[in-house]
Design a protein around this nucleic acid. Structure first.
Length: 229
DNA sequence: AGCACA
């Protein structure tokens, strides 16, 4: 069952996420990690029993989503390989943009889902006995960035939009607090950019997740992507 | 495994 049967869309659906990570941190990290593929409109994550361990990342560009699906497939994120597909349905924030969002219809769909869920519960419990036996419902199972270039994970990070006053010393202070840090490299002839090397691409991605958008000066949020190989 | 918009 490959993800290939779902048509490309600007929203990606990610599963097998580490469920121990708190919702807000998860959303922030996903945003920081995936923003290297393009502009992100929204990140949705819920911790309900049915939806934990999953998230949706909405890009403005479908190509960004495609690159993200390919390049970050199975990438270890909080120690678990991400499983990425395209989302099955259009995100609300997109529907609202293109005018196809219909609040009434939305409520009907929601009510319908709820109805069907309850119905499923009923049919497995003919006596109307509630599911309090050990809390196990499992026993009831029946039918039941301007990224034109794809960016693959790399142990070297590419930093852009630095203030021209930034020095490698300053960046070193910033990045060396993350495990696996090796070195900062800047090019005299090219102010505003830098390369930061880590031991491996998981460690570099951790630094990216927390420093993405970090401002050395108020007008310079840094943009971090994996360096091209 | 699990496709939503708290």
């Amino acid at each position: 069952m490959l993800s290939g049967d779902i048509p490309p869309s600007q929203t990606i659906y990610i599963k097998n996420l580490n469920e121990k990570v708190k919702k807000e941190e998860l959303k922030r990290s996903l945003y920081a990690l995936f923003s290297q593929y393009g502009r992100i409109l929204d990140v949705v994550a819920l911790k309900t029993p049915k939806l934990r361990g999953q998230a949706w990342v909405v890009f403005t560009e479908i190509t960004a989503a495609s690159n993200a699906v390919r390049q970050m497939q199975n990438f270890p994120f909080y120690d678990k390989p991400m499983r990425i597909q395209y989302a099955k349905t259009k995100s609300d924030c997109i529907a609202k943009e293109d005018g196809s969002y219909d609040k009434k219809k939305k409520q009907e769909e929601k009510a319908e889902r709820k109805r069907r869920a309850e119905e499923a519960q009923q049919s497995t419990m003919p006596n109307g006995v509630s599911a309090q036996n050990g809390g196990s419902t499992a026993s009831f199972r029946h039918g039941n960035s301007s990224a034109q270039e794809a960016v693959a994970p790399n142990n070297i990070l590419f930093i852009e939009n630095l203030p021209h006053e930034a020095t490698s010393m300053m960046l070193e202070m910033l990045f060396q607090q993350y495990p696996g840090f090796r070195e900062v490299r800047m090019i005299e002839a090219k102010p505003g950019i830098a390369f930061v090397e880590f031991e491996d691409d998981q460690q570099s991605s951790m630094a990216m997740q927390t420093l993405q958008g970090f401002k050395i000066t108020p007008q310079n949020p840094m943009t971090i992507t994996f360096a091209k190989k």
